[in-house]
Design a protein around this nucleic acid. Structure first.
Lengths: 194, 194
DNA sequence: TTTTTTGTTGATTGACGAGTCAATAAACTT
DNA sequence: AAGTTTATTGACTCGTCAATCAACAAAAAA
């Protein structure tokens, strides 16, 4: 039955399965067999395509970051004006796609991974830099010299809200998080003007 | 050579060794043997006193939370007035003790643990509630109805700044985190008055 | 048609790790 | 002195899992 051109399909299936399994188990203690089974193939095939478990994790991480990046870009392209663009970024960070339980769990575990795997750390650093830069572009015309402080605060606040989501029982509440962020933003901008 | 009354000594040594090892490895993929070796005993003894690896982790977590709680209480008892008490809490959260790489790494990994181990989740929830309540007590006289929003924001911000410190390369910079927090606080309080 | 490339898996290897157990020894009790 | 409790460990069991391999199947290239 071997159809040709399976590689990208299999890889994508594995990446998605990895995120699901990490979310299900809640940690990186996920076996390649579990991932492969969920993706509908043998563990040997997973190794065949990715070489190692670590590569699978990194691919999954890239996938999450790519989704997030795309979502931000998509939101930005329709938003006009710095304030609207800022809100677009914040909304994208808490969009249903990124704020699913499994995605949050994946993030949390990638943070852990970043402590030991340089490649993972680099990926995360790229995301942080891009977020920061996006925020700064919008903030500078609004807050001048205070832009960097506000951007750092917003970045940390986003991560912190993700963290807290992990412990919360019940369904995720993106609106509350965005509200808190926008409240923070509003008061910081007022501060600059005072 | 068996001296009597070793249990508490051994347990404490194991707990401290656990935190060190988690910091060193950067994850919970720490073997009981590693922990025991660092604590200067056989792995069998570690099992003898704690029964399971999970119990060891939970004890380590309790230890970290206890230290943090003590630090906050200590800082609070000398501070007079709501503003000073707020700053005391913030400073305690970023005291050198809590800010050592190993402690922060432990914290991050306990977060992961909290996703799957109910006992761990409960411990972390207690910490969050206590922090929130401490903040609220100080904030209510200063910000009235806005107190809860500010407390939630501070809590998330603390966690988020923590996170970024672990992942940052280079030495940690508690002062910058405290500065950002106090900046946030200041502008939020001004907000309430406006 | 033969050969090569691509897809696929069951079985196996080799390592490692949590938890148990039997055995030893020092202290404390009676 | 005999018995009990506490401390301590080396050796072992049992399971798991990442990674490899040999083998088979089908498409594409020669």
């Amino acid at each position: 039955m071997p159809k040709l051109g399976m590689e990208p399909i299999r890889k994508e299936a594995l990446v998605k399965a990895t995120i699901v399994e990490i979310g299900r188990i809640g940690s990186l203690d996920v076996t390649v067999s579990q991932i492969a089974r969920r993706a509908g193939m043998s563990s040997a095939l997973a190794h065949h395509y990715f070489g190692s478990k670590e590569e699978i994790f990194l691919a999954a991480m890239r996938h999450i970051l790519t989704i997030y990046g795309a979502e931000v870009r998509g939101a930005l392209c329709t938003a006009k004006g710095p304030e609207a663009r800022l809100m677009a970024i914040l909304h994208a960070s808490f969009s249903p796609g990124n704020f699913r339980r499994e995605a949050v769990s994946a993030w949390l575990n990638f943070w852990v991974l970043a402590q030991t795997v340089p490649q993972a750390r680099r990926l995360l650093a790229v995301y942080q830099r891009r977020l920061r830069s996006n925020l700064l572009i919008c903030l500078r015309p609004l807050a001048g010299a205070r832009a960097t402080v506000i951007a750092d605060g917003l970045g940390a606040l986003i991560d912190g809200l993700y963290l807290r989501e992990v412990l919360k029982s019940g369904p995720p509440d993106p609106a509350a998080s965005v509200a808190l962020l926008s409240d923070y933003l509003k008061s910081q901008l007022k501060e600059g003007r005072a």
